[in-house]
Computed example of a mutant assay.
Amino acid sequence: MPSFDIVSELDKHELTNAIDQANKEVTTRYDFKGTDSVFEVNGTTVTMKTESEFQLNQMYNILVEKANRRGIDIKCMEVKDPDIQLKTAKQVVEMKEGIDAGLAKKIIKKIKDSKIKVQAANQGDSIRVTGKKRDDLQEVMQMLRTQEDIELPLQFNNFRD
């Protein structure tokens, strides 16, 4: 019986590359000269450090641009409130991955409401979709790609025939 998995994964290597490129741009840009502006990555958490809120906004734009170029969907970015003090400003950007229980229920409900003859089951960080026909599975993939209200980027892998 054909099946596939719906997952939301973050390529950590591409994230590291995007951060390296962003740091390189920050060190060469004229409006960041003399500031100790830096991007730091720790697992899936990116910390932006600089001197002012305006520069934080500029750094966020750089981060989004570099992440987009590296194929990281910006839907997975969750921006926290900035911590602004006298001469320092810091902001954390969480990179979300994995499908939590609430989003999994929402996706499974959408699949069932579409009346496509498939079964969907939550498997922790992924959702397994099984059906008798490969065409039905591809129809589910296409339907999920067009959904606007799913707040995480979805990937489809482990396709078995």
Rank of each mutant, 00 (worst) to 15 (best):
P2W: 00
P2F: 04
P2G: 01
S3I: 03
I6Q: 02
V7N: 07
V7Y: 05
L10R: 00
D11W: 10
K12S: 10
H13L: 13
H13K: 15
E14Q: 15
T16Y: 13
T16E: 15
N17G: 07
N17T: 10
D20W: 10
Q21E: 12
Q21G: 07
A22K: 05
A22E: 06
N23Y: 11
K24R: 13
V26P: 01
T28D: 09
T28S: 13
Y30R: 14
D31T: 10
D36I: 00
D36P: 00
V38H: 12
F39Q: 03
F39M: 03
E40V: 00
V41I: 02
V41G: 06
N42L: 04
T47Q: 13
T47N: 10
T47C: 07
M48A: 07
M48Q: 08
T50Y: 07
E51L: 04
E51V: 03
E53R: 15
E53I: 07
E53T: 09
E53G: 08
Y60E: 11
Y60D: 03
Y60F: 14
L63G: 02
E65Y: 14
K66Q: 13
A67L: 15
A67W: 01
N68V: 00
R69Y: 09
R70A: 14
G71M: 08
G71W: 10
I72V: 10
D73R: 08
D73S: 12
D73C: 01
I74A: 11
I74V: 11
I74F: 12
K75R: 15
C76E: 06
C76H: 06
M77K: 05
V79H: 09
K80C: 04
I84H: 05
I84F: 05
L86W: 10
T88Q: 14
A89P: 01
A89R: 05
Q91C: 02
E94D: 11
M95F: 15
M95I: 06
K96D: 05
E97Q: 14
I99A: 06
I99E: 01
I99L: 12
A101P: 02
A101R: 14
G102I: 15
G102Y: 14
L103I: 08
A104S: 13
K105D: 15
K105Y: 13
K106N: 08
I107E: 04
I107N: 02
I107W: 06
I108M: 12
K109G: 02
K110W: 07
K110Y: 12
I111M: 07
I111K: 05
S114A: 15
I116D: 01
Q119I: 05
N122S: 14
Q123E: 14
G124Y: 11
D125H: 11
D125E: 10
S126P: 00
I127N: 04
R128H: 09
R128D: 03
V129Q: 03
K133R: 11
K133T: 07
Q138F: 15
E139V: 04
M141L: 09
M141T: 06
Q142T: 14
M143A: 03
L144E: 03
T146M: 11
Q147L: 01
D149N: 13
L152M: 11
P153M: 04
F156R: 04
F156L: 08
N157D: 13
N157A: 09
N158F: 10
F159H: 03
F159D: 03
R160P: 00
